[in-house]
């Protein structure tokens, strides 16, 4: 069972956002959609999650699938504690005992056990994003959509959050679409990287990385070679 997008077109009025876009994701795979700001990455996620349909093209494999999200903003409710925020999205689908167990597990895994009863305003930016990560993973979803969740964070925080993310992701390898404009993030997280051009978003190239996540770092020879490849793709598209 795979998730397939074929030949997707989307425009808003005169604005051609996505063009002839095709993409496929195996189950339990993490794919990265790498492209400059405004290349229609968020539009693509909205099409996948069914917020609006594409003008043309087909998507398949997403029927009846539940989806969880990680946004650039933490989007936590200020009047609910960390625990209550996770409970907010779980309540309609799981029993009380299941929820208690799941919330405790994920709060622990993102290192917020001592802060589970804190309101978001009392937490640091990094802790809030951890809470949002816990919410995304605690939610019983088949697919995980991520829209630049590490954007605008300082390097140290970003590295720590990405590590927390990878160890959570490796536990059940949830099929995931990860959208970013940052090459380093794509290199560290993606199993398959779709490089998009500027608007309208067209797939410029597809790069697979089969190095296990735990062995990846930005100094690794193979990673550096792939980085070169991506740069080549990006600069080529710039000359057109």
């Amino acid at each position: 069972m795979a998730f397939i997008l074929s030949n997707i077109h989307k425009r808003f009025g005169d604005l051609y956002v996505l063009k002839e876009l095709s993409m496929s994701l195996e189950e339990h795979q993490l794919i990265c959609i790498l492209g400059p700001s405004g290349c229609g990455k968020t539009t693509l996620l909205n099409i996948i999650s069914g917020v609006f349909p594409p003008d043309q093209g087909e998507i398949s494999g997403f029927e009846d699938k539940s989806i969880s999200y990680l946004f650039q903003e933490t989007r936590l409710l200020r009047w609910k504690t960390v625990e209550e925020n996770i409970d907010f999205v779980l309540k309609d689908r799981l029993s009380k005992s299941q929820r208690t167990e799941i919330i405790a597990r994920y709060v622990d895994m993102v290192g917020l056990r001592d802060f589970k009863n804190y309101y978001p305003d009392k937490l640091s930016g990094g802790m809030k994003q951890r809470a949002a990560i816990a919410r995304a993973f605690a939610y019983p979803a088949d697919i995980l959509l991520m829209d630049e969740p590490f954007k605008g964070l300082d390097l140290q925080l970003k590295t720590a959050l990405m590590q927390a993310f990878i160890s959570l992701w490796l536990m059940d390898k949830r099929s995931a679409f990860f959208v970013t404009h940052d090459i380093d993030e794509a290199l560290l997280l993606g199993e398959k990287i779709y490089v998009l051009t500027e608007r309208p978003g067209v797939v410029k190239g597809i790069i697979s990385i089969d190095i296990p996540h735990k062995e990846r770092n930005l100094h690794n020879e193979n990673i550096l070679r792939i980085e070169q490849e991506i740069y080549k793709l990006i600069t080529n598209s710039g000359r057109e």
Binding site: S49, Y69, F71, E73, R75, L77, V89
Partner: peptide, 13 residues
Amino acid sequence: QQLLEMAHMYRVK
């Protein structure tokens, strides 16, 4: 609006 979007995406009743 972002919170609303989040709640709708997570299919909260």
